[in-house]
């Protein structure tokens, strides 16, 4: 005879569906598949901000990135039962997010239509306002150069630096061999260096003209 959902459980366990905050991603996803909101909230706490960082650097717009993150978790809730464990849960979540970002970019066909205040501000302003202004300007410059990288290189760079994904996981998310991930990452770094240098030269020329 089956036991009804939550019957005979401690009240805390009933609320959490038997999950604890220290559970593995796989066990949380299994609970999501059985309809546990608590498990989904746990996954959101773990990966929400990282996915947001990934999405915002590809889309260039915090509002769009937030929508993509919520769509990712709704899609994860729908598809949790289909997860076969062929890759890690976080690689799976990033794959969903990447597909949603690609769809959105295809629809928009323009990377930066929103203001980029999100990437400009310094979270811990230094006491020296001049230093603070320089840091903000430099951050904006880096963020803008990242957005100018070719799509595949940008995705690889963002997944590695901001998502902390392993090379194998990035290969799964991007559907390419690990060797390609390495070469894309190396290309992204050298290209970014060139773009930043070019940007600095342009700024110097502008200052000279003024």
């Amino acid at each position: 005879m089956g036991i009804r959902d939550g019957e005979g459980m401690h009240p805390y366990n009933r609320a959490t569906g038997g999950n604890t905050p220290g559970d593995s991603d796989e066990s949380l996803l299994r609970s999501v598949a059985t309809g546990s909101d608590f498990a989904l909230a746990q996954l959101m706490d773990r990966y929400g901000e990282r996915l947001f960082g990934f999405a915002v650097r590809l889309l260039g717009c915090p509002q769009d990135a937030e929508e993509v993150v919520s769509d990712t978790f709704v899609a994860a809730w729908r598809g949790a039962g289909k997860f076969r464990g062929e890759c890690s849960v976080r690689a799976w979540l990033y794959s969903i997010c990447r597909n949603l970002v690609t769809d959105r970019l295809r629809r928009r066909k323009n990377v930066s239509t929103c203001p980029l205040h999100h990437t400009v501000g310094d979270p811990s302003p230094a006491s020296d306002p001049e230093h603070h202004a320089w840091t903000g300007w430099r951050r904006e410059q880096v963020a803008s150069c990242v957005r100018r990288l070719p799509s595949a290189a940008r995705q690889t760079l963002v997944l590695r630096i901001y998502g902390d994904l392993t090379y194998e996981e990035i290969a799964q998310v991007c559907n390419c061999p690990v060797g390609t991930v390495r070469s894309r990452l190396n290309y992204a770094m050298t290209r970014l260096g060139e773009l930043l240098d070019a940007e600095n030269v342009d700024n110097c020329l502008e200052e000279d003209q003024l």
Partner: peptide
């Protein structure tokens, strides 16, 4: 460049 990239990481606030 790597240092600059890492410094942007702290700004991801959902």
């Amino acid at each position: 460049v790597a240092e600059d990239l890492r410094s942007l990481r702290t700004e991801d606030r959902l």
